[in-house]
Every structure is written in C-alpha cells, then in structure tokens.
Design a protein around this nucleic acid. Structure first.
Lengths: 151, 151
DNA sequence: CTTGAAAAGAACTGCCT
DNA sequence: AGGCAGTTCTTTTCAAG
C-alpha cells in the first residue's frame, strides 16, 4: 500500500482538480522546486497511485441536458446472465458508467440523453429490453459536486 | 449548442480516456497533422465542450478498498435544510461525490473507506448524524466500467 | 533537498494549398 | 478545412552543491 506524506497529499489534491498544470506551477503553489515536484509526481505515477488524466465533456454544452441514474435489479442472475447483461448494456451509447454493485440493486447506470423525451426513448427501447432486467428505478441529476476525497 | 463532426468525435473519444497525450500523438492516431489536431482541441476547449483535465486516484492502491453508494432521503427539505445538509455533507472527507437528484432519493453520495469497519464508522458517526437525513440506502461497488458516452 | 543548464519535445504562429 | 516550417516555451534529465 502506498503511503503519502502531507506534501504528497497537497500535491495530489491540486492535480486532481486540474491535471493541466505544469510541475513548475504546482511546485510554486506548494513551495517546492520544479524538479522536486516532478520527482514526487513521477514517484506517485510509478507507484500506481495516479490514473491516466481524463478529460470530461460538458454534456450540457453538447446538447445532452439530461443525466439520469438508474438502479437495476436483475430478474435472473447466474454467471452467464451477468455477462450477457454487461455486454448488452455497454453497447448502449447513452450509458456512460456501468457499476456492478451489491445491495438493493445489482447494477447502477449513469445515462445521458438530449432531453426527457430522448431519455424515454433510451429507457423504453434500450434499457427495458436488456436481457434479464427486472426492476428499474430512476433518479434525475439536478446538480453534482465532486470533493477531493479522504486523501 | 456545439456541433461536432466525425473527426471531433474521434478526437474527443481518444482524449477522454487519456488526456496526457500530445497533440502530435493524437493526430497520428487520426491521420491529422499536429497543428490541425491542436487547432481542433483549442476550438473545442474555447467553445466549452471540454472540462479541465482531471487526475483520478487509485483509491484501492492507497488503502481505500471500499466504495459505497448511498441514496439519501431527507426528512425535512426546505431551502434552508438543503443548504444545511449540503454544507455538512461536503465537510465529510470520505464523501467523494454529492449528487442532488430528483426521484426516490434526494441525494446520492459516493463514499470511500479503508474497509467495511471504517465505512461503518463513517456511516454511524458522519452520515446518520447529517442534518435532516431520513432514509439511507447503500450499495457496495464491486466493479465499474466507464464508457465514452453518446458523443 | 536545492540551483543551473542542456537536450528533447510540445505548444503555438504564420503562411501556403 | 489541412499541411509545412519555424519560433517559443515547457518538460525532462543531468550535474553539482
């Protein structure tokens, strides 16, 4: 398990929200030199603590104004049906995230659509026809805030 | 609303999974020159289609092996109590994401913890004591897959 | 850990098809 | 819209304190 000191934590917090900053700029904010900052980042990357930087889209700006979270319960769930379900669900373009979970639901999906009418189309034609799907529960996203987490 | 052509879409898909690639490398994969690729990226950034690049942590590698999704229903939800709730919930370090939603739940939280015992501590001492919290439902993350989405 | 410097590469600009 | 060539800046690596 990778251990971080306080400087690492501050570095990680800064780079989580904006991975586009240079090692020099990050170091200045922390009172570190550019090589020292760069070495810390490299150490964290090599240790596998940091994932590859990702670029999220502003779906609203691209005309996808509706985000819905679905909780799904499967009617039948042997090993084969889980695989069938996952193959089918990952083939739906509007599905952004597929989470296999334990609890009241079996899967949780994050779905984006242009509007509510578009979402209804996805729900009726793609989600409800998934193999083995039982109960479906929906929550419409109003707003979202990401936090740095316990690091 | 921003419109993307097929080349933009392929570019965006590549940069969503790894924003660390140079414009030259991205262009080679698409059969574009470095400046052409760079100009497309700049245009998309300036139009607001792309958010700032983010760096996710590998929480499991850092000793946080448990991710739990919570669905919360508030008992009382005037404007003031929503704000109280949000202020209190964003102050919990283990809470990674706070989603205000419409439906069966009022809020959905993504919570990380070191293990189940650690999660129980967070649940009992931090979540159940949130102002106005009513019903709480939990799902433990087994695995997660992110998809490019409908772009 | 620091500073300084050199080499490599990426970002950005202007001009051309 | 795209390509080519050139300039500028940053990143990356090394040496030395």
């Amino acid at each position: 398990m990778i251990e971080l000191d306080e400087t690492d934590r501050r570095l990680v917090r800064a780079v989580m929200t904006d991975a586009g900053q240079s090692a020099g700029a990050l170091g200045r904010a922390l009172g570190l030199s550019q090589p020292a900052t760069w070495r810390r980042l490299k150490r964290l990357r090599d240790a596998g603590a940091l994932r590859a930087p990702r670029l999220d889209l502003d779906h609203a700006a691209l005309g996808f104004g509706v985000t819905v979270f679905l909780g799904l319960k499967l009617a039948t769930k042997g090993r084969v049906s889980l695989e069938d379900f996952e193959r089918a669900v990952t083939a739906i373009p509007e599905v952004q995230t597929v989470e296999h979970v334990l609890g009241l639901y079996d899967y949780r999906l994050r779905v984006v659509a242009r509007d509510i009418a578009d979402f209804e189309r996805v729900l009726r034609r793609r989600i409800m026809t998934l193999p083995g799907v039982g109960n479906v529960e929906a929550n419409v996203l109003l707003s979202e805030e990401r936090r740095p987490g316990p690091i």
